[in-house]
Structures are given as C-alpha cells and as structure tokens.
Amino acid sequence: MSNVKEIRKNFGQRALDYRLSSTHSNPSDLDRMIKLLKPSADNIALDVATGGGHTAIALAKSVKQVAAIDVTPEMLAEAKIASDQEGLSNLTFKAENVHNLTFADHQFDIVASRFAIHHFDDVKIALQEMCRVLKPGGKLYILDCSVLDGEEPEREINRIELLRDSSHQYSYSPRLWQQLLKELPLTIDQASLIKDQYELPEWYDRMGTDLHNREVIVQILNNLSAESKTGYPFGDDYITAYRFELLATKH
C-alpha cells in the first residue's frame, strides 16, 4: 500500500519547518556529501525526495543541472524558494514518485537522496529505479536514518520513529543495508554508520508529535535491554540516533 498520502499529509503542513531545519541543512553534512561525490561541472544530478531542497542546492553549486523530485507539492514549493534565495537557475523541480520514475535509463551522473529512504514503502523497487536512471560509472549517494544491528534495536527504534512520524516505514540497520545493496549493480565505495543525536523537543516539534507518543517513546527507551541502552543514551534534551551513509558506483 502506497505511503504517499500519509507523506503528503505529514510533510505538506510542515514544509517550511523542513526547509528551515538545522538537521537537513547541516553544512558539514552537505560538505561531506560533496567531497565524497566529487562532482564535476558537466554532471547532471537527481535529488530524490528533495524535501526543503538542501541536497539539490548543494549539488547545483557544483554541477551543470539538478532535477529535484518529491511527492509533496508544498515541499517542492519550499525547495524552489530556497533555490531562488541562493540565486540558482540550474535546478528543475518536479512531482515524482521514486517507485516509478519517468526519467530515461542512464540519464544521471549522480543520484542522491538524504533523509528520505525510511519513508519508501518498497525500498527494493525504489533503489532499483535510482540505479536504473544512473549512468554506468555514475555515483549513488544515500544518507538516511539508521539503527544498530540486532533484533531489538531494529524493532524498537523503528517503533519510536513511527510514533514520532506516522509516515515512517523503516530505518534499515547496516546489516539490512548490506542485504539490499548486494542485489544492485553497484560497487560500494564507502558505507558507514554515523552516531548522532537529535535535539529535543525540536525533533518532536518538527513532526508535531503528541504528548502521549512522546511519553511512550521515553518508556520504550527506558525498557531497552542493557546492551541496547549503551547504544541509545538519551536525556530530557536529546535522543541518540544513527545514520547510514553510502557512496557507490554503478557497474
């Protein structure tokens, strides 16, 4: 069942918050992406699920053209505002679903997606589509929410994410990412798990998480096993999080 309706409901009303989000616009994250990708001035790039446009804008400063896609019209409008504020003219914004891209095979030198894959309802098809439109020798870059390996964190941290955001589908652990990637025509250049933390209550407020769900999230964290608790410390003003970062080259 498609998750698009829930995504549009949740993010359409919060599009401005995501354009202004310090997490999504983090300059050190974006700089690291550019250093990994090493884009050239003649490259054509695709930003999948552009959100507030941060990834597309960072790429547009280094490449010839960027196509930025999203399923939420309000997000595309905010991304366009952000690109206009930067004075950029080499971006196009289009409503597209990653599960059924309208782009031709082998069209892009770079395909990137940040903080989006955990919303995709069929990750295998989405990744296949991202690879399909990528040129042989092209680069795939992904940065997304992740969880530690293991039955408990894979289950319980995803419960937490869903309580916060009803459009959440699944945050994949490195173990599960390895399984997904081995089925794709990719050579893995770099794959890493990055430990981070979200500031509270900003993390909740950005999605309008209600008080009951916030309380349940704290209960889940308190009830984790001792082993899992070592990986997920938290406090009144923060929650520990992980991100999976991937750079790969298409065969």
Rank of each mutant, 00 (worst) to 15 (best):
Y232E: 09
E202Y: 07
D196S: 15
E199G: 11
I125R: 14
E215G: 10
P153V: 01
L221V: 12
Q197F: 12
R214W: 00
F234D: 10
A191H: 10
H106I: 06
I220L: 09
R214Y: 01
N223Q: 14
D144F: 00
N213S: 14
I117K: 01
L143E: 09
K135I: 13
G208R: 11
D144E: 02
G150Y: 00
Y172A: 03
E154H: 09
L224Q: 09
G138H: 07
K195G: 13
A116F: 00
E151G: 02
C145Q: 07
A191M: 12
S192R: 13
L186G: 08
K195N: 06
W177A: 01
Q128H: 08
G137Q: 07
H212N: 11
L127W: 01
R155Y: 04
I239W: 01
F115P: 03
D236W: 05
I117P: 00
I125A: 12
V111Q: 06
L180V: 03
A116E: 00
D144N: 00
P233Q: 11
H119P: 04
Q178Y: 02
L176I: 08
G150W: 00
I117W: 00
S228H: 06
D165N: 13
E202D: 12
E129C: 09
Q107S: 15
Q197W: 04
A126L: 03
A226I: 14
D196N: 14
F234R: 09
L127Y: 02
S167F: 00
P136K: 13
E156D: 08
E227N: 12
I142T: 06
P233N: 10
S166G: 06
G208S: 04
R214M: 12
I160Q: 03
D189Q: 15
L200P: 10
I239V: 15
T187C: 04
Q107C: 08
K229W: 01
Q178K: 15
L176Q: 15
I142Y: 02
N213F: 01
F108H: 08
R175S: 13
H168T: 01
Y170F: 11
D109N: 15
Q128K: 15
S166C: 05
F115E: 08
Y141K: 08
H119F: 12
P185H: 10
T209P: 03
L143V: 10
D105E: 15
A226R: 12
Y204C: 05
V147N: 00
C131N: 15
S171M: 02
G150Q: 03
Q169K: 03
S228F: 03
Y232R: 11
R159Q: 14
H119R: 11
L211D: 11
K195W: 02
G137T: 10
V218R: 15
M130Y: 03
